[in-house]
Amino acid sequence: MKLTIVGCSGSFPGPSSPASCYLVTAHDGERPWRVLIDLGSGALGAVQKYMDLEDIDAIFLSHLHPDHCMDLCGLHVAVRWGPDGWNRGRIPVWGPAATADRLATAYGFDLDPGMREEFDFQLWQEREPVTVGPFKVTPFTVNHPVPEAYALRVEVAEYDGTGMDRTAVLTYSGDTDSCQGLEDAARNADFFLCEAAFEEGRDDHIKNVHLTGKRAGEAATRANVKRLLLTHLPVWTSANTVVAEAREVYSGEVAAAVAGVHYTI
């Protein structure tokens, strides 16, 4: 499984990165599959550095704040109005119950049909996995001030040519403060892509919104993850600060996400 950091800026695009968007690629033995986790403001342009838009196999939304979903409006334009047509059918989109209506409202459409002619909207059900190609994706409810917010556990079975060898696990926190759902989603993960929008001493008095680097590190330790990558850092949050906070409470490898960097999981 390959992870590409398309966008990792928290809450809105920064000078060096779009808002949240992550490209995950895996091969099922016949062809590569490409899914996007979140498609936040500013991300659609950057996605095109790494793939053709027609090669999107599915989109998984953690929640419906604009910095995680709003560039679906631009993707709708590409699907509907590209002069060469769209040759892949509707794009599957998994998200909260309000996803279709939220996007229609953002674009000024009537709710019916909204964007249903371009996207095949599917609803998350708590801890019920969905399968797309080689990916199994399971949503876990987390602690963020919207009606539905999820951490996503992404699993891919890897093969060595003689039989199934192992399952690679990537957990994405979405936006959350500390909670049991986050730790359950990350349990024994190979790679924990975890938000750390807040800093200790500046924001730690704010509860039920975002993690600090320390809180992210504590979750990583309790979940026994192998590697921690901090993401969703707003322009006013220091990568050095949150990484140092995480290292105080987590003994594994930790770094901050940078747009354009690739990881093999």
Rank of each mutant, 00 (worst) to 15 (best):
V6E: 06
T99K: 04
V154Q: 02
D110Q: 15
I59F: 10
A246S: 11
K136I: 07
D84H: 09
R227Y: 12
A106P: 00
D84K: 08
D55E: 15
R202N: 01
A256N: 09
G161W: 09
T221H: 11
Y172N: 09
T99A: 11
W124E: 07
L228S: 04
P18E: 09
P113W: 14
G45P: 00
Q125H: 14
P96S: 02
P147N: 05
C73R: 07
S11Y: 15
C21N: 08
T4Y: 08
T264C: 10
A168G: 08
K214Q: 13
D120R: 09
Y172S: 12
M70A: 15
R227F: 12
R31A: 14
V261N: 03
T4A: 03
E183H: 00
D28L: 11
Q48E: 14
M1V: 02
P96Y: 07
A43C: 08
E200S: 04
S238H: 11
P139R: 08
R116K: 12
D112L: 07
A257W: 07
A149C: 08
V130I: 13
V209S: 06
V142N: 10
M1K: 00
D165K: 13
Y150F: 15
D110W: 14
E54A: 10
E30V: 14
L53W: 09
V154Y: 02
H76F: 14
G10A: 11
Y150D: 13
G163S: 12
G217C: 06
I206N: 10
A98H: 03
G252W: 09
V35F: 11
D67V: 05
G85M: 04
L193P: 06
Y50L: 08
G95K: 06
R227G: 02
H76V: 01
V24C: 01
K136Y: 01
P129C: 11
M115E: 05
Y50I: 03
A46N: 04
A157W: 02
R88I: 02
L53D: 02
I206W: 09
L3G: 01
C194G: 04
R80L: 13
V209C: 12
S11P: 00
F60W: 12
K214N: 05
M51F: 07
R88A: 15
T264A: 13
I206D: 11
H63E: 15
G217Q: 05
S238E: 15
H27P: 00
P92F: 08
E245R: 08
A220M: 06
A246I: 10
F119N: 07
R127P: 01
G213P: 07
N188L: 12
S20K: 05
R88F: 06
E148Y: 10
E248L: 11
D38M: 03
E245H: 12
R34E: 12
W124L: 11
H27C: 09
H63N: 15
G108M: 07
Q125P: 02
D110G: 08
L64C: 10
H262L: 01
P139L: 09
K136M: 11
R187G: 00
S41C: 13
C21V: 01
S178T: 14
T241W: 07
I91E: 05
S173Q: 07
L152H: 04
S16P: 02
S41V: 15
H65L: 13
V156L: 01
G29A: 14
A197D: 06
R215C: 03
R90H: 04
C69H: 14
I59W: 08
F119K: 07
A216P: 03
E158W: 06
E128L: 13
A106R: 04
W33N: 01
S16M: 09
